[in-house]
Write a protein that binds this DNA or RNA. Structure first.
Lengths: 156, 156
DNA sequence: TTTGATGCAAAGTGTTTGCACGCGT
DNA sequence: ACGCGTGCAAACACTTTGCATCAAA
């Protein structure tokens, strides 16, 4: 039996949907709840999660729903690993992802850690970087110990 | 009529293939030359480029070839934008990619610019980042001027 | 000659689209 | 009642795989 998001949060979602002139459907509510539950949700993981709870939602609806929710700023996606994009609530989006090529684990880090770098890039190029959007690849501490030199065991 | 890589470089490629115990085929040579020419090559762009020159190479061969060449460290891939991965010579891989959400342009930057940040991340988390592997998203100077606030016109 | 590499076609994976129906408004 | 949102199936883009053939060693 899956956990439920706080009522206040659900209410907020409804309001934002409404404010954007979009319909509040059971599928969209379930979708948001599921994105809230799975903190890094792929389209497939959402379908599975929703099938496990009561409301099953069609895969195309998931894609269209995520697209719509992203357009109105409720969710955001990031590119982690090679599988499709992963979605999360926009409110929880201020972290960047370090993905390990060795074990695949994802380490979250507050974007503030990247601010000095972002500022340097901005000064040099005029480019304003958004680090929360894509994962940064590398090797975590453990995998560095296990295989410091080997870089060829994955398919990110 | 496409440009040709320096003979010395081609020779190096042959030697590396040989050293890795792999066969030096015309397809692999053509593939490397094409990756050299198109500096950020996708599988499709390679097939097209190769078809335009004399040697046409099958798409599956391109995939298998890139995979093999990557395994022995001659080429590397990076994830730029939403299309498939893009390949480049490993020797030319020491730059990171800033991709603009607005106009799609890719700005290259030497990885050394990210070293202070990489070191900070390493100290905080033990994670050793490889910035050349995935693009960093954001907005270039021009697009910041054109639409400073709007973040929703693309599909990265 | 031996076996890795290639071409072709078919299958796999992840995402998008056309259309008719149903439900939120 | 109107029209957006949904389910379904088919299309799509990209990548992988099985198998017979070919050519590098």
């Amino acid at each position: 039996m899956p956990a439920e998001p706080p009522k206040a949060l659900q209410q907020e979602w409804r309001e934002q949907l409404h404010a954007a002139g979009m319909r509040v459907t059971s599928q969209r509510e379930a979708l948001l709840a599921s994105v809230w539950r799975l903190r890094h949700a792929t389209a497939d993981s959402l379908v599975t999660d929703l099938a496990d709870s009561d409301t099953s939602v069609n895969l195309s609806t998931v894609y269209r729903g995520l697209d719509a929710l992203e357009r109105i700023g409720l969710v955001r996606h990031a590119h982690l690993g090679s599988g499709g994009p992963t979605y999360h609530l926009a409110a929880a989006s201020h972290h960047l992802h370090l993905q390990c090529n060795g074990c695949g684990r994802i380490i979250s880090l507050d974007v503030s850690a990247a601010e000095p770098f972002a500022d340097a890039v901005h000064q040099q190029t005029g480019f304003r970087a958004d680090f929360s959007h894509a994962a940064i690849y590398g090797r975590c501490a453990e995998c560095l110990v296990a295989a410091p030199a080997d870089q060829h065991e994955d398919e990110s």
